[in-house]
Design a protein around this nucleic acid. Sequence first.
DNA 1: GCGCCATTTCATCACATGGTGAAAAAAGCG
DNA 2: CGCTTTTTTCACCATGTGATGAAATGGCGC
Lengths: 203, 203
Amino acid sequence: MRQAILDAAEGLFARHGFYGVTTRQVATEAGVDTALIHYYFGAKRELFDAVFLRRAEILNQERADSMAAYEAANPGAMTPLGVITAFIDPLIERSMTGGPGWKSYFALVAQVNNTPTWGGETMHRFFDPVVHQLVDTLKRARPEAEMTDLYWCYQFLTGAMMLTLSETGRIDQLSEGLCKSSDLEAVRARLYRYCAAGLEALT
Amino acid sequence: MRQAILDAAEGLFARHGFYGVTTRQVATEAGVDTALIHYYFGAKRELFDAVFLRRAEILNQERADSMAAYEAANPGAMTPLGVITAFIDPLIERSMTGGPGWKSYFALVAQVNNTPTWGGETMHRFFDPVVHQLVDTLKRARPEAEMTDLYWCYQFLTGAMMLTLSETGRIDQLSEGLCKSSDLEAVRARLYRYCAAGLEALT
DNA sequence: GCGCCATTTCATCACATGGTGAAAAAAGCG
DNA sequence: CGCTTTTTTCACCATGTGATGAAATGGCGC
């Protein structure tokens, strides 16, 4: 039941945001009583945090491993493209093969990422260590780069990446079917190079 | 009063999103009665659209003019950097000198941009023409580029740009004060080159 | 002053909201 | 089986929600 509640909450929060979802909707979707949500998670916000944490832990582990593996395999010969690929690819992979729960999750993170009041603080709580690992690894790949530039690069990267992973369907409508949000192979073929080239241009 | 309501709604929607704001809060903030909101705008969603439309019109005009002026000044010698600068700079300029209302507005657009269900549709309704102008102009600057690549470039660009313009404070916390969300000159010095280099790398 | 209009306030409705405590059911265990 | 503990349901509360229609207020030409 605990997992069923998390799954239902994840999907709903992803579609309508924190305030756009009621505990009753979550309960109905999960097929349980409203009170059960409070029994397991307490207040609504704590449920949200539980949803957020569940996959964040997995993601942080995979990304840390991915970057560490890349660095170990290319001692002294790291490129920004390689580091960035190691940083992003675990997410693309999960989105492509992890099932609909992961798609919802990324849409959720994208919203939080762009939420002013508590979004920055939430991202900070769950994702800061792995981002610092990215920036530090990039610094080792390009020692002459300024830290400020690297942080800005991360900002641009995460904005582009999360919007793309959230698959809002905007690009489908805009390009009149030429591009498809769901075509993550097309993203893979472009996003990494895009971000790497941007970084090279700034350093 | 009409403007006061729009201002209050804009600030609140930007901070808490559509569902995170009640008509009563808007009324209190604007110093008017709840019923007045319905008198002027009808349903809550129509109020939201009115907020969204007010500055979208200004923005679309300025961006269209900016890109047209660039093209007129550089016949046959356009660069992606120039086109992208002409596309983004009006927003940066407004955010820097337009007052707090504009800052709220960009935070609002950033959220809508990342909203799955109705976000794509809303962006489509208000901003599609000027984006098509961007893509078409880029195509004239780089005729050999594929349209699909240009659309993806726009997707990455808008993700990076809107997250940055929403000034969530995340980069401040992440970089421990090294970078400041509010330092739009720092953004100007980096974002244009970043996006232009990304585009060149894909074409 | 007076009628006419747009604007603003007031009182209120029907319903949704997050949350709670007690009771019921199910599961673990000798 | 009996007993305890965990899990699930039920009934309910206080408050907040978007929205409405009637009444009051204000400005303005005459």
